[in-house]
């Protein structure tokens, strides 16, 4: 098998603030296979947005490596990086503030084409019309301003803009969180269609595990900037091998309120990133924390095919569950 499109190795991002250093992303490594949708989940402040930005070098990483299609992009000079940028794009959370209110929709979508000097005016207009059509809007919308559109339509404009340069990789940063549930489903299906048609690779950042389960092939769980668990979406959903993933899963609302389920709600707040707990950063809120969790960071523990848990006690806690699932 050829290498994954994106390979992340020991990636870190530190922010220096007056009150100390924040480790927004700390020593994260995983692969995003070509043509797959990888979900990145975590609470607010878990560093998932920073990680997504870092992959496009919209935020400069402090350490580690990102390889895009085999090329290490962390050390690329800006001019070379600009050539790479065409191949990767981002769709934002807020469909209003991510569109310049003073530009017409046609100019918004054509921005990337203009930046790279692709086509002349007429060709760009044709291209924009085709893109609008592809995301379910009409070519007549080109000469209107973004405020004339609903949230879902604006998100479609954002998607069309990201697709204009025909990228291979898209980071969707909470791209449906700001939308109504019914609109969410439409936009999610649009993303799935586009993935199919254009063979896109996506990193889908979300805090909602049910959306991620619907959409993704692989799921990575982030907590306080550290990876907690990564694995195939099915395994993460059915046999999660990390106490944090279990807690997140148990927070998904079910359609049947009487359904029996084991709930392990998390106590307390996410700790300060200025002063994260020693050892496993989750131990202060973990229902299964033991003395060994405080000593040294938990390495990757393989629990299944392409499935790793960053919990020292994973074998003891979930070994039988996971084993049962594989037999």
């Amino acid at each position: 098998m050829s290498h994954a499109l994106i390979q992340i190795r020991n990636l870190s991002k530190r922010f220096h603030t007056p009150s100390g250093t924040v480790h927004a992303v700390d020593d994260v490594s995983f692969d995003i296979p070509r043509g797959s949708i990888t979900g990145l989940v975590g609470e607010s402040g878990s560093g998932k947005t920073t990680l997504g930005r870092t992959l496009l070098r919209l935020v400069e990483p402090s350490g580690g490596q990102i390889r895009f299609d085999g090329t290490d992009i962390t050390s690329l000079p800006n001019a070379k990086m600009r050539d790479m940028r065409r191949r990767m794009q981002i769709i934002f959370q807020d469909p209003m503030s991510s569109l310049n209110p003073r530009l017409k929709v046609g100019d918004l979508i054509a921005e990337g084409l203009r930046a790279y000097g692709i086509g002349n005016r007429a060709e760009r207009r044709d291209r924009v019309a085709a893109l609008l059509d592809e995301v379910g809007l009409s070519a007549d919308h080109m000469d209107r301003y973004p405020h004339a559109f609903s949230g879902g339509q604006r998100q479609r404009i954002g998607i069309a803009r990201a697709l204009a340069l025909e990228p291979e990789f898209i980071v969707a940063d909470e791209s449906v969180s700001a939308l109504d549930v019914s609109i969410q489903a439409q936009v999610l299906n649009l993303l799935l269609d586009l993935r199919e048609k254009r063979n896109l690779t996506m990193l889908f950042i979300a805090h909602d595990l049910s959306v991620v389960n619907y959409l993704c092939d692989q799921v990575a769980v982030l907590y306080l900037g550290r990876l907690m668990e990564i694995g195939p979406a099915g395994a993460i959903h059915k046999t999660p091998a990390h106490p944090y993933t279990r807690a997140l899963n148990s927070a998904i609302p079910l359609p049947d309120p009487r359904a029996a389920r084991d709930r392990t709600p998390l106590q307390g707040d996410i700790p300060s990133q200025l002063n994260p707990p020693s050892g496993c950063v989750f131990r202060t809120r973990c229902p299964h924390a033991a003395p060994i969790c405080a000593a040294g960071s938990p390495g990757a523990h393989p629990v299944g095919p392409d499935h790793q848990s960053y919990c020292k006690r994973t074998e003891k806690l979930y070994g039988h569950d996971v084993a049962a699932a594989h037999t």
Partner: peptide, 14 residues
């Protein structure tokens, strides 16, 4: 700091 400026940078705008 607004997202549309970040989007512009991601789109390769100078």
């Amino acid at each position: 700091e607004l997202p549309y400026v970040e989007a512009a940078r991601a789109l390769g705008t100078r």
